[in-house]
Design a protein around this nucleic acid. Structure first.
Lengths: 168, 168
DNA sequence: TTTTCTGCAAACCATTTGCAGTTAG
DNA sequence: CTAACTGCAAATGGTTTGCAGAAAA
């Protein structure tokens, strides 16, 4: 018989796309459980949002979605993202720029380093810092529910190029 | 002779007001050195801003200044605060609320704990956290120029009262 | 059918800016 | 006089909302 494609022994390796579709379906179905109606347009927004994976602006997202749903308007993207944030599927981040950036909520907790030269955002995680935050807050009588830690500076490339913050 | 008021032996204790006036004068004079013109209205805005000392919104500040300069408009306060920020006399903070809050820049560096129940903002300083931030950033190839650390949670009073974040 | 979703245009809201008159140097 | 300052009203720009028609349950 002709050589059939080898498959890795453990689990069928779901393709990125299959995986994406599954995540979209899961969210869509949970929303339906809450009385909302399924919508093709919304599914596409959610899919493109999840595909992006990190720190998208409404505008960037709109652009990507427009490629598939030419007539879609700003409001739908705004409304969908607000819904995702409300339901806990997305996190809204404000890094000081004009617009809000969004990222999927199903990632590990992390903080951000932002390059003031090129605007790139990198993530990091530091248990020691978190622990100190907790301790500090407790000392002040606060019970912390969330925090925000952002480091601003120049990435290696920008520092080498002598680039600085965008002209003011 | 009648008992004259005792004065502490070291230095004449400048009153809060005298001190305030001096700080205003110093800023005003430095601004003049840079080609700007002195202005009574601006001096008052600066004075009320410094008197407040922490985390004022434009609106709060406008209210205080209006008590002394009834006809003053929003734009003047906005322009003055922007000037103070540009020249390094004020720091603009965005704690997630609608409006920007301002605080004098001549304070020690510090971070903030914000109560999501009552909105109060407390300051703290933690060298250990700062050091870890530096180290973390360096590991990622970044040279940090500034950072932002905010802890959000409930203060003791709000926790006791079972208060939560403002109704959504 | 009934309710949610969607696109469009208008509304919002904090902040900025253009303009014409006022004031400091 | 000249350039900076001020109040006002209009403009900005990201985000939200009201409305009427389209689509899902």
């Amino acid at each position: 018989m002709p050589a059939s494609p080898k498959r890795p022994r453990a689990a069928e390796p779901r393709s990125k796309e299959t995986d994406l579709a599954a995540r979209v379906a899961r969210i869509s179905s949970r929303l339906k459980d809450q009385g909302l109606k399924r919508s093709g347009v919304r599914d596409i927004v959610v899919e493109e949002f999840l595909r992006e994976g990190t720190h998208v602006s409404i505008e960037q997202l709109l652009e990507r979605v427009r490629a598939r749903v030419p007539g879609i308007g700003y409001s739908t993207v705004y409304r969908t993202l607000r819904l995702l944030v409300e339901k806990g599927y997305a996190i809204a981040r404000d890094f000081g720029g004009a617009q809000t950036l969004f990222e999927p909520a199903d990632k590990r907790h992390h903080d951000h380093v932002v390059c003031v030269g090129c605007g790139q955002v990198r993530e990091f995680e530091n248990r020691a810092i978190e622990a100190l935050q907790e301790k500090t807050a407790r000392r002040l009588g606060f019970r912390i529910t969330s925090h925000r830690l952002e480091l601003y500076g120049l990435c290696a490339a920008c520092a080498a190029a002598g680039r600085g913050p965008p002209a003011r």
